[in-house]
């Protein structure tokens, strides 16, 4: 989790205009979702992996681990789509029969699930590209330029900041508990965990109060003021994005049999 943030600030694409990265993300993810052929989704996954590993310089082992995270969720979700339960027997590839019900995998269900899996993987890759190359502050900046309501952006900023504070506090409490054998077995573990969660609530409440006080002491009047570093759009990058995505679009249309 924290490493994602580390790479967001320290990658070879950190100096690129966030708008360009956002454009690449948005167009590619749109293509991936709108033209969900196996070809498109696979290419998008590989394209983003290449961009993250080669262009941004994120270690491939780390990237692979990151992909495994949603991979597990996806596998479970996809399994549910693949299996269909019916009364009448269908052309199952494999099925079990209990009472008057059939539970099995059909050709179409399998196709659907594979397609869904690849499509999600492609979309997740796009999101990873954005979050591994662009710091939160810059994403917020792009969203603000796109006229996202200020409230949403300020919430994003504060939530982002609090994630780190809460993680740190959790880590401290967890360490303090473990050092006094709080997690020596499952029973004490659950007990300690419940206390940890309780004290997290109390601490975060206190901390938010204290933070509000300190904001007010610096004349806070409801606006967190965003500052953005002026960055130059790079024509070459935009051209590259347009070329790559156009090629992707044409190939997808061709592969989908629409051209």
């Amino acid at each position: 989790m924290l490493l994602i943030d580390h790479y967001a600030y320290n990658n070879k694409l950190a100096g690129v205009h966030p708008g360009e990265k956002f454009l690449f993300f948005a167009v590619t993810v749109a293509l991936c979702l709108a033209l969900p052929t196996t070809f498109t989704t696979l290419v998008v996954t590989l394209l983003m992996a290449g961009a993250v590993v080669f262009a941004a310089g994120v270690p491939w082992r780390f990237y692979l681990k990151l992909l495994l995270l949603p991979g597990a969720f996806l596998a479970v979700g996809v399994a549910a789509v693949a299996v269909s339960v019916t009364r009448a027997p269908q052309d199952f590839i494999w099925a079990i029969h209990t009472g008057q019900y059939f539970a099995g995998i059909t050709r179409q269900g399998l196709d659907n699930s594979v397609n869904l899996f690849l499509r999600s993987l492609g979309a997740v890759s796009c999101l990873y590209f954005l979050s591994l190359t662009t710091p939160m502050t810059e994403i917020a900046d792009v969203l603000r330029k796109m006229r996202m309501p200020t409230l949403v952006i300020e919430l994003m900023t504060l939530i982002y900041r609090f994630i780190f504070i809460l993680l740190e506090v959790t880590r401290q409490i967890y360490t303090a508990q473990s050092s006094r054998l709080g997690y020596k077995n499952t029973r004490t573990g659950f007990n300690s965990l419940s206390r940890l969660i309780l004290s997290m609530f109390i601490k975060s409440y206190r901390q938010s109060q204290a933070m509000y006080d300190s904001l007010v002491s610096r004349c806070y009047s409801g606006d967190l003021h965003h500052l953005s570093e002026p960055r130059q759009w790079c024509a070459r990058n935009i051209l590259l994005i347009v070329t790559v995505d156009s090629a992707l679009l044409l190939c997808s249309l061709y592969a989908g049999g629409l051209v």
Partner: peptide, 20 residues
């Protein structure tokens, strides 16, 4: 930690002056 709310240092430092 109770005082720094911004994600970046410059933004946090500039918060007060902008509020003025």
């Amino acid at each position: 930690d109770n005082q720094l709310f911004s994600a970046s240092v410059l933004q946090d430092v500039a918060f007060g002056p902008l509020n003025l």
